[in-house]
Design a protein around this nucleic acid. Structure first.
Lengths: 343, 343
DNA sequence: ATGAAAGCGCTAACAG
DNA sequence: CTGTTAGCGCTTTCAT
């Protein structure tokens, strides 16, 4: 069952009565540079084809101390938000000659650290990480050790490594503003993981939009503590059963939204008749839900692309300016989940 | 920006005043085998920890002629069906010491072949492929060359390589039978890619269930030709606008279902009042759609796990019996999308 | 109970 | 224009 080891440089060279050096040079496109006879070059190329020569990447990597490989670590690859980013990362990396290792940290910092070490020992040339949580010290360590790193989605304040996220503040502001324009003032926000940077930014967007509309600060309703479906369900159930329920709910993730929808349905309510809804994260199914959902879309293609660009820049020796923190614009999709209270 | 190359065996050995041989043996768990002094073993382990030694995988792979890496190729990593399988493949592989390269073929055979070659030159120890299409010759080639391969999801008739799929026939039979039990006899099937093995099996499940219920063969309605959202939309629109529309639609994929839902909604109809619906593929959102959807769930965890087991078996030299074709049971989720016509 | 040294396949410095 | 050779870091045979 052992993989038949294909022809190697030495064998190829001896077939051609040439030295390995010459063959290597031709195959690495350095024929002109070393003024190798055109005829020789031709012979080498033909032989390589005939014998299906392909270089042993291990030997190459060992020698060159680079693997042309990057590692990608996400908290949950089965979450469509991440899998679409991964898709774009894979495409762009492949186009630029890099293979990608995938790692799933299961929303767990220990796993995340283990994966970083694992990929490091696999000598990846760079790392793209959507970090799990609240602590960044292990990320600083790895970045300072000289490993090219780009952080996506979530980040931290005052970090050195480059970050690519959505403009979470603006997205949340837009969503809240849309509700306000439609006459809602009693707007509940169901948030995700507290103190995580995207959550903080989104909450700020909500707060500022409310402030700008002159909603008194004590009328803000901010509940919840996780980006999960359960959190959405629990919080929405509480909110909607209250004596004086909100007219609108702004859910800070696609999963929270699914939980909210279940609560709405379980309570025998209908959206948007009984309660209006806006959700962070556009999904393929957003338009097909019971009441097509108004959403804030994050640009997953752009996030993936930029991340690859920034790792490869670092790999190629470019120094990125300190504190690079790219915030990519979000886009609002207006659908029917908001009731207009002005009419 | 160059990666500070971490400590290597030689350096570690010299720190310890030991030979590289001894250190290597300890670190590879061969201490007893070579009767290395317990104290020495202890010292080595401690030093390895202190200096954060991690072996250079290239050197290792070059020497051992194996990479402890597998390649996974799927048609679309952003499709939750595949991303969940990938999640399970990654987890199991990691647990067994293998890293996984991810490749997205974009539903394109040329890309699939390119990825196979790419991963081969990267010297992966094995390959798990969810093939794109209808042709299997390139897969036979690679398998016969001695590369451990497992095919998942889609397959082909009369192939040598091992295959792990769902029991598509049974799933489709169950779905159809459920509709029949609820009094439906005019059931339209919107199929996916024709002549692909899962599609064929599912169609057969539908046909056999109808036959068993004594529905005349000319009352079967089979339309469509792709697992896509567009196909679902187009076919459902046609079906529902016909003079004598079906009372139920069975959609052979989650994407087809989204298309059907859009058609239903665009035509001002409601499910299940105007038309009942059953869908292949359970999704996180299935329960939250406009009318919670009755679905046939494929066991993505089991598929991923088995696939990993079978590649690793091959890598470890086990000969799998020819024509191994594992069909994993599906599970029906009964929800509200079927109207009972018997009452 | 431990070490010396060969060699995996490749690149590049040095040598013509 | 082409070749010889050292060496990347590791495992393992052979020696002691």
């Amino acid at each position: 069952m052992k993989q038949r080891t294909s022809i190697n440089l030495k064998e190829l060279a001896s077939q051609l009565n040439l030295s390995v050096t010459t063959v290597s040079r031709v195959l690495n496109g350095k024929a002109k540079q070393y003024r190798i006879k055109a005829e020789t070059e031709q012979r080498v190329r033909e032989a390589a084809n005939i014998f299906h020569y392909s270089p042993n990447q291990f030997a190459r990597s060992l020698k060159l101390d680079k693997s042309e490989t990057i590692g990608v670590i996400v908290p949950d690859i089965s979450n469509p938000f991440f899998s679409e980013i991964v898709k774009n990362i894979e495409r762009e990396s492949k186009n630029r000659g890099y293979a990608v290792f995938i790692g799933d940290s299961s929303d767990n910092t220990t796993q995340e650290i283990a994966l970083i070490n694992y990929f490091t020992s696999r000598k990846v040339d760079g790392l793209i990480i959507a970090p799990v949580g609240l602590s960044s010290s292990h990320l600083n360590n790895i970045y300072e050790s000289g490993m090219p790193v780009v952080i996506i989605d979530r980040s931290f304040n005052d970090v050195d490594f480059p970050v690519v996220t959505s403009n979470n503040y603006q997205g949340a502001f837009d969503a809240t503003f849309e509700l306000l324009k439609n006459g809602h003032t009693k707007i509940a926000l169901i948030q995700g993981l507290q103190n995580s940077q995207p959550n903080t930014d989104r909450v700020m967007g909500y707060v500022d939009a409310m402030k700008q509309w002159n909603i008194p600060h004590d009328k803000l309703i901010i509940v919840g503590n996780s980006f999960s479906i359960e959190n959405g369900f629990i919080q929405a159930t509480k909110l909607l059963q209250a004596a004086d329920p909100p007219t609108a709910i702004f859910a800070l993730s696609n999963l929270i939204t699914l939980g909210v929808l279940k609560a709405v349905s379980d309570l025998g309510l209908v959206c948007p008749e009984n309660v209006s809804l806006v959700s962070f994260d556009e999904q393929a199914y957003s338009a097909f839900l019971n009441t097509p959902m108004t959403t804030i879309e994050q640009n997953r293609e752009e996030i993936g692309l930029r991340a690859v660009n920034y790792v490869l820049d670092q790999i190629n020796g470019l120094r990125l300016k300190k504190g690079l923190f790219l915030k990519i614009d979000t886009k609002i999709h207006l659908r029917k989940s908001i009731k207009n209270l002005n009419i």
